[in-house]
Design a binder for these strands. Structure first.
Length: 281
DNA sequence: ATGGCATGACAATCATGA
């Protein structure tokens, strides 16, 4: 069976406010695994029944006012979640920025990277530390899981072409050398930026400021990403930004990113490295 | 000019975002 699998990430900037848009989006788009950031909800007030009613099982880690992440699984299309974790084991952190689970033999990691506020601030140092801890943890996860996807709001524009005005943003938060070095550190684990596996339109962004008509003027940044392990990059057939979400009434300031995977045979999940190597010759 | 929105907590402004 070769049914395509679609993975998405969207920073909703308050799930309470964006729930109607999310429900409508889930009804019109075929997405199977949906990572959300900035839910800004405690776990008690997570709208799990509403999402269950449209066919999604929810896993979430939230807090009052800030942060909060969730993964939604379309239960008729993907297997039940296993090995759910709701924090980075190595980091003692009250901020809810990470949730991970395994479905369909895929380790799905949903992350809301710290913003960093301004270069050199305490929050900036926390951001770099958080990225470093995530990277170390992912190294171990990749050793255990061939198929791994890291989705989320990275709060990093990796390259000049991901920024509407690279000169204006040079060295600024989201674009600083150390943040970009952190992003490259994730790629160095073997992960691929799914969006850049394909030819893309120029000025493709995922975030636009609410102010100054930034969206209409195409003044954005590409800071939401889907990174795929080699086994998943190999079967990725598309990666697109859903800008329609940003065009709506009372939108989130982020658009969603959606990747499509050819749903490979399950035997590939546990293919030993030696065998994969042999197949190359 | 470090603002201009938007969101949430809280009750007039303030913290935070990116």
């Amino acid at each position: 069976m070769q049914v395509p699998l679609r993975l998405a990430t969207w920073n909703v900037n308050s799930l309470k406010v964006r729930l109607p848009q999310l429900l409508a989006w889930l009804n019109t788009r075929t997405v199977d695994i949906v990572c959300l950031q900035e839910t800004k909800l405690t776990d008690e007030s997570f709208p799990k029944q509403e999402l269950l009613d449209v066919g999604y099982q929810c896993h979430f880690a939230g807090q009052k006012t800030y942060n909060g992440v969730a993964i939604l699984l379309r239960t008729d299309r993907v297997s039940a979640a296993e090995a759910v974790v709701t924090s980075l084991p190595e980091l003692d952190d009250v901020q809810k920025r990470l949730i991970a689970l395994t479905t369909e033999g895929i380790r799905v990691v949903c992350a809301y990277f710290p913003n960093g506020q301004s270069v050199g601030s305490d929050k900036y140092r926390y951001k770099l530390q958080w990225i470093s801890t995530l990277t170390q943890w992912l190294r171990a996860e990749l050793a255990k899981n061939d198929r791994l996807a890291l989705l989320g709001d990275f709060n990093i524009a990796p390259e000049a072409r991901d920024v509407h005005d690279p000169v204006l943003w040079e060295g600024q938060i989201l674009c600083s050398d150390q943040e970009r070095e952190g992003f490259r550190g994730l790629l160095a684990l073997g992960l691929a930026d799914a969006f850049r596996l394909f030819e893309q339109p120029e000025r493709s962004y995922t975030w636009w400021d609410y102010q100054n008509l930034a969206f209409r003027r195409k003044m954005g940044l590409r800071i939401d990403h889907i990174l795929l392990s080699p086994a998943l990059a190999k079967i990725c057939t598309a990666c697109e930004i859903d800008v329609e979400l940003r065009r709506q009434e009372r939108p989130s300031d982020h658009a969603a990113v959606v990747a499509t995977l050819k749903h490979g045979q399950s035997e590939k999940h546990h293919a030993p490295a030696s065998k994969a190597h042999a197949a190359h010759r």
